[in-house]
Amino acid sequence: MKTLYLDCFSGISGDMMIGALLDIGGDPAWLKSELKKLQIDEEYELQWEKVVKNGITSTKFDVLLKDDHHHEHDHDHGHDHHHDHDHHHEHDHNHDHDHNHDHDHHHTHHHHHRTYKDIVKLIESADFSSEVTETALQIFKKIGEAEGHIHGVPLDKVHFHEVGAVDSIIDIVGTAILIHQLEIKKVISSSIPVGTGRIRIDHGIYPVPAPATLEMLKGVPIEQSDVRFELTTPTGAAIVAVLTEEFSTLPSMEFKAIGYGAGTKTFKDHPNVLRVVIGE
């Protein structure tokens, strides 16, 4: 059985997951053409490139919002909150840039707050395979329920701010597309470090992990970590919680492929990457 092992030694976010799946052999052209079915491609561009994180070559995946073309680097993906970590962009200066941009610039400004219901409609009407639709909807439901629970709102009323919405739609639907394109039948994951400290979001200053992240990690083994940063984002938590069938250290299997997806932040003492392994 084709198994994907998620080695989340530096946490997990939606963009790290996509980066890792592209790195291990996911097809970016297929990802792009499938995502076009959502019919929101005038709102974003995808960018992926090889970067070196503390000595490890990995793939960095970014969703760039079209209306102002800034890198969404400091937003932890997939949140109905803007995060402000008070951090500068810390790029690795030893990028070997093989940039892949897809530019089709006709700018339309119709970002708005998308509700959970809007997003479900968007995914259901996109004509994906039933497996992709099902996986994407399950992951979104996990986030919607957690946010609803935290804020005391029914699922249908949960909404995502525009940055969070487009980012998390791409990260979640993209993950579903690539998991099925790679024909993964089972996902096993390590325990999940979440980080520590505080983050500033729309609602004020919150502890790490953010409440919705913690809510989604019920039943998931957490690993203590002293890193003062949000290692695992709500999107990352939702992906792990929905896809993973069991949690363990590296399982006994024959490894066929290994990939690394880069996170936004660079740490002094360890590579901020998600390692994925495909085995039988």
Rank of each mutant, 00 (worst) to 15 (best):
S248N: 07
G236F: 14
V227Y: 12
L250D: 05
R228A: 15
R228V: 14
E223D: 09
Q224L: 15
E254I: 13
G261E: 03
T244R: 00
G236A: 08
S248I: 07
T244Y: 00
D226P: 13
E230F: 02
T232V: 14
T233V: 01
T232S: 02
Q224R: 15
A237C: 02
E246G: 11
A241T: 11
A238M: 06
I222W: 03
E246W: 08
D226Q: 11
A241R: 09
P251A: 01
E245D: 13
E254S: 10
I258E: 13
S252T: 10
F255H: 12
F247P: 12
S252A: 13
A262P: 03
L250W: 06
T233G: 02
S248T: 13
E254D: 15
S252N: 14
G259S: 06
A237F: 00
Q224K: 13
T232G: 03
F247S: 05
V227Q: 14
E223K: 15
Y260Q: 08
D226V: 10
F255E: 09
T249E: 13
R228T: 14
F229Y: 15
G259H: 02
R228I: 14
E254Y: 06
D226S: 13
L243N: 07
F255Y: 10
G259E: 06
V220G: 04
L231V: 12
G259V: 07
R228Y: 12
E254W: 09
E246C: 09
A257N: 10
G259P: 04
T233N: 01
E254N: 14
M253W: 04
A262W: 03
A238P: 02
P251E: 00
A262L: 04
A257T: 08
T249Y: 06
E223Y: 15
A241K: 05
I239E: 09
S252K: 15
E230V: 09
P221W: 03
T249G: 08
Y260I: 12
L231W: 03
K256H: 14
E245I: 11
T235P: 06
I239G: 07
S252Y: 10
P221T: 01
V240R: 00
E223L: 10
F229S: 11
Y260H: 08
F247M: 11
V242M: 07
T232Q: 01
F255W: 08
E223S: 10
P251D: 00
T232E: 02
T249M: 04
E230C: 04
E246Q: 14
Y260R: 07
G261Y: 03
E246P: 05
V240H: 04
F255R: 07
A237Q: 04
T235V: 09
I258G: 05
A237W: 02
E246I: 05
T232C: 01
P221Y: 01
T244S: 10
T244C: 02
L243M: 14
Q224V: 13
G259T: 07
M253P: 05
Q224H: 12
A238F: 06
T232R: 07
